[in-house]
Write a protein that binds this DNA or RNA. Sequence first.
DNA 1: GAGACTTACTTATACGTATAACTAAAGACA
DNA 2: TGTCTTTAGTTATACGTATAAGTAAGTCTC
Lengths: 337, 337
Amino acid sequence: MQHRSARPTQKDIALAAGVSQATVSIVLNRAETSAVPVPTRERILRLAGEIGYRPSHPARTLRNARTMTLACIVPDITNPFYPGLVRGLQATAAPAGYAVLIYDTDGTPEGERRALGWLQQGRADGAVGMFYHFRAADLTDVARGNLPLVLLGRQSVRRGGPPIDSVFIDNVAASAAMTRLLIRRGHRRIAMIVAGFGPSQVRAEGYGKVMREAGLAPQLIVDNAHSAEAGVRAMRTLLAQGGDRPTAVFGANDMIAIGAMQAAREAGLSIPGDVAIVGFDDIPTANLLGLTTVRQPELELGALAARTLIERLQPEGSRTASRSLELDFEIVERSSV
Amino acid sequence: MQHRSARPTQKDIALAAGVSQATVSIVLNRAETSAVPVPTRERILRLAGEIGYRPSHPARTLRNARTMTLACIVPDITNPFYPGLVRGLQATAAPAGYAVLIYDTDGTPEGERRALGWLQQGRADGAVGMFYHFRAADLTDVARGNLPLVLLGRQSVRRGGPPIDSVFIDNVAASAAMTRLLIRRGHRRIAMIVAGFGPSQVRAEGYGKVMREAGLAPQLIVDNAHSAEAGVRAMRTLLAQGGDRPTAVFGANDMIAIGAMQAAREAGLSIPGDVAIVGFDDIPTANLLGLTTVRQPELELGALAARTLIERLQPEGSRTASRSLELDFEIVERSSV
DNA sequence: GAGACTTACTTATACGTATAACTAAAGACA
DNA sequence: TGTCTTTAGTTATACGTATAAGTAAGTCTC
């Protein structure tokens, strides 16, 4: 009894109230119950308050097999698209009693594997993630531990195995729409800057399809990152083409597009006078720079992911099959076109 | 034995290997020990792999009284200053085996109280936080549960009570330096846009001190948020002053400054020709917009906070007194002055 | 050949909680 | 008066792990 600084437990309350720990647990958990008479119940509640009792989350977790935690696995939280997603996730998760754990994977296979390893230790009850290197099929053994998973981005429909949901906007349709906008504005030489992985893939698809349908030649510049630096590099390459350089450039995300804008300005070109530039995501900065882009509803995506996970965690939640939840995108026209 | 989908435990390995659970635990935890002969140890390790055993994080947490989790409590993760902080925190925490939990408080008293409540349930081993409404003195009962706390921002030195560390840059000196820069450039009417809480307080202090020393009249516009919208509102107020409107405006953070830039441009003013605008934080967007600002090393602040917490969690870590860890700021001059 | 020591384990316990199963005492009813 | 029910609890157990304490069999020592 020498360390009175330790957090008080139900046992301490029980001791003080002259009842058993079980009785304390019953009083604290079952709001209305006839099993404990009012005087006793009030004595226990009063003592709990005086002693400063807080339930032990770890103990509850072990006993209930619920961590009350959702994991959010993203490539890099400093990519401005993700904080909004996290915020949406939290806004829905917190009122339901769930905390949010964050993992950055750096978009690397090892990073993603590490995140999955942590999930398999039972650190969270569910996870929403953006994986570049694992497909839904690779994740079934994680999900098999009854761990609900929501992936960002469209997933091919799988049959059999545990349910894995996905939330997304239609990237192909969105980049197609953006490409059509550029064509409508009279552009013929339209290049797209992409990375060789992640969301770039599908976005390039929509672009390529529309270009070919319009009888135009797609020009893809592939870099190895979704960063502003990648945009700068790629734009310099494009500008080095001289006379037949593109009149419009489509960045696979806003960071790339912003980098491209910088490089264009450095080269003394005006936007959109000399070259039009568009992006994808509508991160907060896009608005400030007047970048025409595709708006993704990050907050709603996060909130939807959270709702989906929480639903799956209800008693019969894992009964239903995998769902693909699509939200609407929006083309936001600003001054860069 | 009907639900073979449940995660395997040490007991399952023990059963398969024909030993007791304790032996399995010893083999899995103590790399080299003479207590278990090599053949047995190898058999156990092999079976653990085959069965797909993963230690149960919740069980470990209860047994070891360690959650291996650090909490990060911020007003709003979508404020671009924080993702970098979180990243720095993670980069240091993850290799040490710690996961990072995020809470948004919205900068409200209830939000902050809720976050503290979660901490008191033992969800994390330590926390780094930005509190607007609680001072170190208010946090002692949280810290008393032996929960190391790192606060962002300078804290007055307390004596007695559990140690609470802080990491920060010298906000007063930084805003003083920025104000001096504006004065050096010939500005006389310099206004500052602040919020009535949070980091605004100390930043206003440095500004006010330098202005008075220079014999100039400080003009503080107080809004109720650190957002771009707040900057727009305040700037409109300033511009409505007509002829004696300020020639330079200092935003308490970059979001406010960016809002001010927008409002100035809308009013047809050129920056820095008609009005100079500076901010504080050096969020990624500041670079893109050419905003002169104070650079805070967010990644380093996060990493330092993580290192501090982890140190405190070592056996004798809580022996030393509270520490105040100051990092250097930097004035980043761009085109807005 | 008896005691001490080593080897290779095992048994038991604790962490804090939630809950199923039990029980002693009091009251109701015939 | 004896049985049944209700009341107000209690005891016991489990979640999965880590570790202290114990032990049976074999080996060594003198």
